[in-house]
């Protein structure tokens, strides 16, 4: 929901079958994990997704898998060549 629109605890609770207290508690956990960030807006706090944290994690794993799969492909093709050579009559 926060991915669509930054919201306050009250706005989230209005759209959910749970109490504002439960929403608030849940947001606290997410905030501690760096998944959402809060900024004060008058008397309320507006929560939004911490896209930087999520994006950073995603980007990091993207890099690992890009590198790893490229390395696998390269090494597997060398291995395939070796199998082919083994099959050739000497």
């Amino acid at each position: 929901m926060l991915a669509r629109q930054p919201s306050s605890v009250g706005e989230l609770a209005d759209q959910l079958p749970i109490t504002p207290q439960a929403v608030s508690q849940h947001l606290g956990v997410l905030r501690a994990g760096g998944l959402v960030v809060a900024r004060p807006d008058g008397t309320r706090r507006v929560y939004r997704l911490n896209t930087q944290g999520v994006a950073a994690l995603k980007a990091y794993f993207e890099r690992i898998w890009d590198d790893a799969l490229a390395a696998y492909q390269k090494a597997a093709d060398v291995a395939a060549d070796n199998f082919d050579h083994e099959k050739e009559p000497t």
Binding site: V54, L57, K58, F61, E62, W65, D66, A68, L69, A70, Y72, Q73, A76, D77, A79, A80, F83
Partner: peptide, 12 residues
Amino acid sequence: VPTMTGTATVAL
């Protein structure tokens, strides 16, 4: 966090 996907195509 979005699921990561990646592919490799090999001759083996």
